[in-house]
Design a protein around this nucleic acid. Sequence first.
DNA 1: TTATTATTTTG
DNA 2: AAAATAATA
Length: 471
Amino acid sequence: MRSIVWFRGKDLRVADHGPLVEAAASGEVIPLFVLDPYFFAPERARDLPHRMQFLLASLAELAATLAGLGSRLLVVPGRSVEVVPRLAALWQADQVLAHRWVEPFARERDRRVAAALGRDGVAFRCFEGETLLPPGSVRTGQDGMFRVFTPFARACSARLDLQAPLAAPRRLPPLPPGLPVETVAIPTVAALGLVPNPALQTGGEAAGQGRLRAFVDGALAGYGEGRDRMDQAGTSRLSADLKFGTLSVRTVWQAVAAAAAGADGRAYLNELLWREFSHHLLHAWPELLTQPFRPAFQGFPWREDEATWTAWVEGRTGYPVVDAAARQLLAEGFVHNRARMVAASFLTKHLLLDYRRGEAHYLRWLTDGDWAANSSGWQWSAGCGCDAQPWFRIFNPVAQGQRFDPDGAYVRRWVPELAAYPTACVHEPWKAPAALQAQSGYPAPVVVHALARARFLDTAKAHLGRPALLY
DNA sequence: TTATTATTTTG
DNA sequence: AAAATAATA
């Protein structure tokens, strides 16, 4: 049996890799990565600088790891739907093994690849592993899909009889001799027209394993409280590893569960279930990437206003947490989750701008930018998603800052104009002495919180109807 | 059994 | 208010 193991950018590892283990157990193995112009065309790559840097580093390490195991990663440019069937025929492969992706465009890609391979009698086998449980397999008592997180999480927990993660192969068979190859080198960041950014997380499976160990030995104890603190390193920082599969979600789950961290561990596993929920939702409702889940939000009168949009993007709204989030995103491709929520709430509610603009901006600049998680997070924040925050709940960016960045360290780090502001007003800089405000250059707020809040409530009430009186 | 209604729950 | 489930006819 000769198998192509098709690595595809969401499983850049050798540990807990079902297709690799299966291929190695059944005979000859040809590891393949396709540089699809869908992602790697220079104009596309320039649009995704942070993700591209992490991906290329992970890919280079994967190639080295596979070489160390006695195999070799073949990197081929071209459109997946064309390249994979052609190579399978050229290499006389019996089967192509890969991990299933949940996104609608990826499912279409796989459907077309499977059809083309099938015409040549080559099997295409998609393995689970992107999620803890197969999307669509977690059902309500009435056999429907869950639309509310907590019952979904309960149903997941009831059947999380996960197998132990698969060990990495200790050896792989060499590439079949005499294979016609047309490979290229893994491109560098610079070759794609990007400037390397040393502030980004380091890609690769080894760095991911290191981050997992550091989290389990460190911030996990105290996660329940620490995860909300924007000024502390209280979160896992594993989102990019989960996005690119340098860690499998099952590996992360098992490591945290085995740490027996009590309530802190459960709090983190709950976050993994939010990721799980977003993937299962996107599988059931592919239109979530373009449409609000709640039909009442169709045609919502989002404003079109380039001035406030640009202020939000560049971190010049005059609200410190919102601006810190914006600048952290552009600088290091990561934003603390609470700052993400505050920034998203501010864009959609205070500025009344379409959540899809923010969603696209975050997807472009986040190293961990993941279609399912990003989309469901933005819809949740905007109030139009599955089990979303009710639309009449509006984050107060000042209160959020005072509570979860009490010393102002987070906002001062990312908004240096605030360095000299007294802590008492670092989240309300308009209350600082006028001379300090003038000298710092930090902008006045683009909207007044109370007025913006009232404007959103009026707009939403007119479009969506009365809010619930209770709840 | 299954459809309907009541109750509980809800990031 | 809406979803999920439990209770009931």
